[in-house]
């Protein structure tokens, strides 16, 4: 991380309405290529925010930075009021060490476009791995929790199968159960339906609908499914060129986009359908 003046950033966020996730002037670049340019984005507890935009707009990077899969070059990310990318030392912020990262990261779960299930473990073992080896649950507790979640995603019958025996939609549902087994406060969905055949997209989106309805999760979702984003989101952010070009309620953004680039993007997407 580049040396930067962090004196303007609070050691922790306090007050009545602390956002669950807060990006403050977050910058990400690869060499001279700026992927995200001083991003400010707050997500409230229990809020479902969809991130849309053309490829290369930096939308996936937002999730990857939050999951600590990418480092950031400037700014600070806060989760649940505490800095994620940094930690307080005395009265200032310094880059986080691995212990701090692990502690804060425990609040975040993520599902990936390519599912990324562990191929040498069964569906159930995939779900139990984190609870047993990270959270320290007993095998019995972890199994109960995992079976409950596999039931929620409709995968009870396939729990003893390895991922190679499951369809893409089934693998993604197991991946959602696996992430949920860690009891995160924030869930990230990175194009979770992009690698799926059209006819199985519904089985995954239905599971996400269920999560929204039954859990008080904070969610950030990068998606190309505009209809789904419109249905399910509290807020939609349209990314363009590493910035939030426009954001608003789904009705406002999809119904009456104000910015020209948003209008262009949405009409291009509609034409493609």
């Amino acid at each position: 991380m580049d040396a930067q003046d962090l004196s303007g950033f609070p050691l922790r966020l306090e007050g009545d309405a602390v956002p669950m996730v807060s990006f403050r002037k977050v910058t990400k670049s690869y060499g001279s290529l700026v992927v995200l340019d001083s991003l400010d984005l707050d997500v409230a507890e229990g809020e479902m925010v969809s991130v849309i935009g053309p490829s290369g707009s930096g939308k996936t990077t937002v999730l990857r930075m939050l999951m600590t899969l990418e480092t950031i070059n400037g700014g600070v990310i806060y989760v649940d009021g505490e800095p994620l990318t940094h930690m307080p030392r005395g009265d200032r912020l310094v880059p986080a060490d691995s212990r701090h990262l692990r502690r804060i990261r425990a609040k975040i779960g993520m599902c990936f476009q390519q599912f990324n299930l562990f191929p040498h473990m069964t569906a159930l073992e995939n779900c139990m791995e984190g609870p047993v080896h990270v959270l320290g649950l007993s095998k019995k507790e972890a199994r109960e929790r995992s079976e409950e979640l596999l039931a929620m995603v409709g995968m009870t019958e396939k729990r003893d199968q390895h991922p190679s025996r499951l369809s893409g939609g089934q693998q993604q549902r197991v991946a959602i159960a696996r992430a949920m087994a860690m009891r995160p406060k924030v869930m990230l969905f990175d194009e979770v339906t992009s690698a799926l055949d059209p006819e199985v997209i519904g089985e995954v989106t239905n599971v996400i609908r269920k999560l929204v309805a039954e859990h008080n999760l904070t969610m950030l979702m990068v998606t190309h499914q505009m209809g789904f984003a419109k249905d399910i989101s509290d807020r939609v952010c349209f990314f363009y060129g590493g910035r939030i070009e426009e954001q608003g309620t789904p009705d406002a953004l999809f119904g009456h986009p104000k910015r020209e680039r948003t209008q262009q993007f949405l009409s291009a997407v509609r034409e493609a359908i």
């Binding site: 999951m67 899969l69 990261r105 975040i108 779960g109 990936f112 990324n116 562990f118 990270v134 992430a179």
Partner: peptide
């Protein structure tokens, strides 16, 4: 081993040795 396996392990907060 695909990069996604490392990323999944990070997302589950597994330690480096695990």
């Amino acid at each position: 081993v695909p990069k996604g396996q490392w990323e999944a392990a990070t997302s589950l907060n597994l330690s480096t040795s695990r």
